[in-house]
Amino acid sequence: MNASGSIDEHTESEVLHTWTGKTRQWLVKRLPADKLLPEGQPSYVSSWIYVFGMGAIASLIYIIASGVVLSLNGPTWYHVSGLGHFVNSSHLWSVELFFIFMVVHLWGKYWMSAWRGGRVLTWITGVISFAVSIVAAFTGYLLQTNFDSQWIAFEAKDALNAVGIGAWFNVANLGQIFMWHIVLLPLAVGVIVALHVVLVRARGVVPPLEAASSDTQLTTPDEVSVGTLTEGSVR
């Protein structure tokens, strides 16, 4: 089953001349359909720690859905409507869950040293999505239009002014912060997370740290032990 991916690569080996064709060839080679949406995973993918990435995605879906409802109704709505307040609550709690899942995910990936074997971009896009999510959440706190956001705006301006960006990222300017929070930052989080997940699929899930080619899990009947000699390539 898993051999079909490599067969595809070779059948598409004809030389294409159009940009479109070359792009397709590159994409299909990097991410054939059965790698993008596989039905199985290596036998070692058997731990609850793997579900936290998906948990973060699920929370992100609720963040975006509740955020869309909030922004369609404008900043006053949730102060005056019971339904609005509930939607605001679900926005807050999905954010808290998102961060909880993301942090456990980060811990997991660290202890699995999941950047191994050419997966470093997956790690880096993860860190970027963490950083961008923090800024996005911060702008959300500024948009509460209540005492807390007044105070955060007053307190946070000093750090931003100290580094010289306070006039352009003005925490007391609701119009600016609105644009950051409901357009620019969610877009950035969405793009980075999509890239992150596509990278995971393209690279495959990282094998155990101590996997050795002598493991029974690797030496399946239809597998003539590949690369037994490379075990010493340690850096």
Binding site: M1, N2, G5, S6, G40, Q41, P42, S43, V45, S46, R116, G117, G118, R119, G204, V205, V206, P207, A211, A212, S213, D215, Q217, L218, T219, T220, E223, V226, G227, T230, E231, S233, R235
Partner: peptide, 14 residues
């Protein structure tokens, strides 16, 4: 590089 972590997994699947 050419080690288990870098190659596509060819072992058991679930």
């Amino acid at each position: 590089k050419d080690d288990i972590a870098s190659r596509a997994w060819t072992g058991k699947k679930r």
